[in-house]
């Protein structure tokens, strides 16, 4: 069966950059969570940038994954910035109050700059 979600991780200094493509639902959430957690434990990561530019669908399962990783990043003393959020995903973030705790940026460069990554 075709994968409905793909993602890649890139290390930029002490920032873990996560780019999501496709659809994030309960079926995809578990694997994403596990992979993401192993990167958070790689010893190089303090902060996280999540790029949602190519995330075309998300439901409450995505909210759970982001909130879960946000708490883990906070535990290691870091910050999490989510960028390039499209209109549909933005509505869910607003409904759930996630914007009140998670920082948002317009694009990847702005998000990285906020966390001190010099390009």
């Amino acid at each position: 069966m075709a994968l409905s979600l793909t993602y890649d991780f890139e290390q930029k200094q002490d920032v873990l950059l996560v780019r999501l493509t496709g659809e994030l639902d309960h079926h995809e959430a578990e694997q994403l969570k596990n992979d993401w957690q192993s990167y958070l434990q790689n010893g190089m990561t303090k902060h996280v940038v999540v790029n949602l530019e190519n995330l075309h669908f998300m439901d409450s399962s995505g909210l759970g994954v982001f909130l879960g990783r946000y708490k883990e990043v906070k535990e290691i003393g870091g910050e999490m910035v989510i960028c390039s959020i499209n209109y549909d995903v933005q509505r869910l973030f607003e409904l759930s109050g996630l914007f009140k705790i998670i920082d948002a940026a317009d694009n990847e460069a702005a998000a990285l700059a906020r966390l001190g990554v010099t390009l």
Binding site: A29, K33, D59, S60, L63, G64, V65, L67, G68, L92, L95, S96
Partner: peptide, 10 residues
């Protein structure tokens, strides 16, 4: 299970 209790609200 990392549920956030937002399904019905949505």
């Amino acid at each position: 299970l990392e549920r956030s209790g937002m399904g019905f609200t949505i």
